[in-house]
């Protein structure tokens, strides 16, 4: 069985007044029906990766090297009609701000039906009944009435449900979710996370869930890839990352979650702030902030250590971390 997603040595550079090396040599693969969390802070390249997957990066200002294959399709070679069919058909996306991603002048039913008509060539009646079915599936109460609502008439949680219905209406193989719960309240966030989990099982699609919150990643995903400075520094199952995070950055993030820190105790904060990515990294990007950095870390790129099948850590001292415990 082919992988659902195969990213090989993806490198993305933004040109302009200042060059930004946004993604540096990222490889990532996903099997059908997996849920992967891309975990990282602002500027780590997680959203850029998603945009590249959808072919949304402006070609004039970006240099892309490497390859992206989704379900066997070479995404980077797509253009025109083929790209349109791919976007929203094979792969679709849920955004952070549904209020901005939904068109305010059309009813939600119209927006979903329109997408279905475009991609599946259904008649208007069939498309509307698909829309109704989708609203039901995202557990919107009295969906029939909601079809004729405009986005501003819905609450934040409802809008995000509509956004998910819209994304899933064409049965994509891969769903990209860009921090879809960050703007929501805590009690609504957990509803959306559980909904996505159920829908993932129901539809059997692959999900890439971008988030900065480890707790959210735990709730949604089976696997986690931690990104830092445009690189994947650690990947493994969620259990492995939470219980046995090896990369010092992963460990720092776990500590910063404050989940089990005593009240008022001095926090083990990661010093400094992320690098500006103005040059292509030729050493470990995390070394300047790393409490365990050796001189070798500042001289060459760290090796990718693979302690087990589909598990990797980009740290020179990853094996030691294990031994130390």
């Amino acid at each position: 069985m082919t992988n659902l997603l195969d990213i090989q040595n993806l490198t993305i550079r933004f040109k302009g007044k200042r060059t930004v090396h946004a993604i540096n040599d990222v490889s990532l693969s996903m099997k059908q029906g997996e849920t992967l969390a891309l975990l990282g802070e602002s500027g780590s390249g997680k959203s850029v990766t998603l945009k590249a997957l959808l072919g949304l990066l402006p070609p004039k200002r970006t240099d892309i090297a490497g390859s992206i294959h989704v379900n066997g399709t070479d995404v980077l070679s797509l253009s025109g009609k083929a790209l349109q069919r791919y976007r929203g058909g094979e792969v679709s996306m849920v955004f952070q701000e549904p209020a901005l991603a939904l068109d305010p002048v059309y009813t939600v039913g119209h927006q979903i039906a329109e997408t279905v008509m475009r991609h599946k060539g259904l008649s208007k009646e069939d498309a509307l009944s698909t829309a109704l079915d989708m609203l039901d599936r995202v557990r919107i109460p009295s969906a029939n009435r909601r079809l004729n609502n405009y986005p501003h008439e819905l609450s934040g949680g409802m809008r995000q449900r509509v956004m998910i219905a819209l994304a899933l209406a064409c049965r994509p193989k891969l769903l990209l979710a860009d921090e879809p719960t960050t703007a929501l309240d805590a009690t609504v966030q957990i509803q959306i996370l559980l909904l996505l989990r159920e829908l993932q099982k129901e539809f059997g699609m692959g999900v890439i869930f971008v988030t900065h919150d480890i707790g959210v990643a735990v709730e949604i995903s089976e696997r986690v890839a931690v990104m830092y400075a445009g690189q994947i520094v650690e990947e493994g199952t969620t259990r492995e990352i939470i219980r046995d995070g090896r990369h010092p950055y992963t460990r720092g993030l776990l500590a910063a979650n404050l989940h089990d820190v005593a009240r008022g105790e001095r926090l083990n904060a990661i010093a400094g702030s992320p690098p500006a990515l103005e040059a292509k990294p030729d050493a470990c990007s995390f070394a300047p902030r790393c409490p365990r950095a050796l001189s070798a870390c500042r001289e060459a790129l760290p090796p990718m250590i693979t302690p087990s099948e589909r598990r990797r850590v980009g740290c020179l001292r990853a094996d030691e971390t294990l031994a130390a415990e």
Partner: peptide, 13 residues
């Protein structure tokens, strides 16, 4: 509603 932080004991409801 807080995420559980425990992959073996995720929120169910």
């Amino acid at each position: 509603a807080m995420p559980s932080m425990d992959p073996d004991n995720r929120t169910q409801e």
